[in-house]
Amino acid sequence: MPPLSALWTPRQKLPHHPGMDESLTTIGFDADDTLWQSEQFYRLTEDRFAGLLAGHGDGPDISARLLAAERRNLALYGFGVKGFTLSMIETALELTQNAAPGALMRQILDIGREMLAHPVETLPGVLPTLEALAPRFRLVLVTKGDLFDQERKLAASGLGELFDAVEIVSDKTQAVYERVFSRHGDGPARAMMVGNSLKSDILPAIAAGSTGVFIPHDLTWVHEHAEAPETDPRFFRLERFADLLGLVDDLA
């Protein structure tokens, strides 16, 4: 039988949560594809990029080469649009054997710049849920990526005033969650992390001693895929962001 944590549904009362020494006081939230749309803009840009290089390979091969470049460059450029744009340029040079014309480089820079100006679309249920939680808990935004871009999206989302703290980090690790939840809360054991990435939002937060709440998104970058810790009592999966209110009440 699957563990209780994997089967939580609204209005289901849970037994005392064994992962918490004391009551929940702090809730961390991922940003991209948890609070607002993000990956869809990468997918659309990737399709445009493949179209620009159509004479040098088919779509799947171009996408595979781009993904390989992104993974190689993460340690140098980090996460975000700027690193993605540089990876597109590197892939274009590889595919054209360093003969990519300046006009093509300009087009790639232009579509990268467009990504940095795309509108911010909050996901269903986010605003009313955060508004309901903000008076009761410390809310902390924990996101990785380019500093300027993440600050822009937070400002454009209209959600900024609901957070007690914002942490824009180069990566999300156990040590990062230990530091963030100790700095802005009462330690990891009294904190919950909510996000759409098992690899970045859930697994390292649970390793730090927090509760991890996984809310899948239809589009999640393949680099963020990981196995769900279904047997861990601190792991919960929700289908809708709005269901977070019921889960929090049941764990309290």
Rank of each mutant, 00 (worst) to 15 (best):
P3V: 09
L7W: 01
P10L: 12
L14K: 08
P18A: 11
P18D: 14
P18G: 13
G19D: 14
E22S: 15
E22W: 10
S23H: 15
D33I: 06
S38V: 09
L44E: 15
L44Y: 06
R48T: 14
F49G: 04
L53I: 01
D58M: 05
G59W: 04
L74T: 05
F79H: 11
F84K: 00
A92T: 05
E94A: 07
T96M: 04
N98G: 08
N98S: 12
A100M: 09
A103P: 02
M105T: 13
R106G: 12
M115N: 12
M115V: 05
L116M: 15
T122P: 04
L127V: 14
T129K: 02
R136Q: 14
T143W: 06
R152E: 07
V166K: 08
V166R: 08
V169T: 12
D171W: 00
T173I: 02
A175I: 00
E178A: 04
F181C: 05
F181P: 00
R183T: 15
L198V: 07
I202E: 10
L203G: 10
P204V: 03
A205K: 08
T211R: 14
P216K: 02
H223E: 15
A226M: 04
R234W: 12
F235V: 07
A242T: 08
L247E: 10
V248S: 11
